[in-house]
Design a protein around this nucleic acid. Sequence first.
DNA 1: TCTGGGGTCCTAGGACCC
DNA 2: TCTGGGGTCCTAGGACCC
Length: 419
Amino acid sequence: MSAPAATILHADLDAFYASVEQLLDPGLRGRPIAVGGGVVLAASYEAKAFGVSGGMSGRRARELCPHLQFVGGHFDEYQRLGDQVIEVLYDFTPLVERISIDEAFLDVTGSVHLFGPPRVIATTIRARVLAETGLAISVGVATTKHLAKVASQVAKPDGLVVVEAGTETEFLDPLPVGLVWGVGPVTQARLAGQGIHTIGALAATSPQSLRHLLGHAIGDKLGSLALNADVRRIETHRRARSVGAQSAIGRRTVDDAVLTATFGHLADRVATRLRAKERAGHSITVRVRFADMKSVTRSTTLRSAVASTRTLTDIGVGLAQCACADHPEQHEISLLAISVSHLVPECPLQLELPLGLDPDEHRVGTERGDARRELDRAVDAARARFGSDAVGYAPVLLRQNGGVPDAFRELAEAKDREF
DNA sequence: TCTGGGGTCCTAGGACCC
DNA sequence: TCTGGGGTCCTAGGACCC
């Protein structure tokens, strides 16, 4: 006998940022709004009706919806309300896997004795979230994570869909393949080329054909999801595998001053977060996006793990110079990014970083290595007491450029916190 | 007003080792 | 001398998700 099927809920706040804005300002309710400016971070359902969606350029959004109103984000409120909703979920089970600011999986298999059948739990959650925060949350209920997520998408807006055990295939088969987790525009187009438009058609395709069409891993994964063979468990604690930061800088002529200033800023953000997590990383990857939106990456792997701001800055600049030198036909850059991976625990008292090219230069125990550690520690401590703007490493040469406010970045970074 | 910022995972080729 | 095959790591690129 197999174990009784699990009961998984996927709870997903509707048009989250935009709904919060409409909550905060009643004058925005019932109207098409978008959070963002140059790019749409989130659209209200009234705006979605015109085809406006997240990630779209502001200009395109206005073309689709001339009366669209842009609003600046209240990022602290998003975090606060998102946390408040997650706290409601914990009242029903400790098995909560938060996957972003506004959505989570719950395993309520063991909760039914306390709170009633899954449908009752889901209904209670939706009512409590609405009463306590004023926000609509859609919930999908099923026997697997994937199916629960598909169900919550189908439930939107402000709905509940329960897929009863035994009816999974019947539920999934007519749905479009785009609802399968991991099927984006490229994969969807590839499948459409073979006449595969529904999850049922995907499930009916042979594993060999899928592998041939999409590659081994993707083909196998999609095949199993379409056949409802998802065996993933709820993971309550997930460790980050990389820490990164990026900055769109408009169009800038390639020069060292821009690289130094930008990587100073990015490395500061990344290294500070690494040190706060007591982690350091062996691999550093830099991405340079040119003015024509083509981007290239350069990476390096060091024998020792890095978490120092200054060291990360130097490596970032060096890798970006390599990338630019390899593309002499490109004269302008529009974005720089740095990411640290192959993370390892770093005890604050432990030594760090010999560097690749000149191993002695930055090693702790040498004058420069010690100085860098002391500087990082002093800056971290001052910021902890006086706020993140209290101390900087370099003059902020970066024009704000109408970009995303720092508060939004801090919001994205807040996902680092262990939920 | 040309196109954000944070991530995860997969593929493919080459180096290197056994 | 020529002939192998498998495994692992690194780098670069890309699809996808929120």
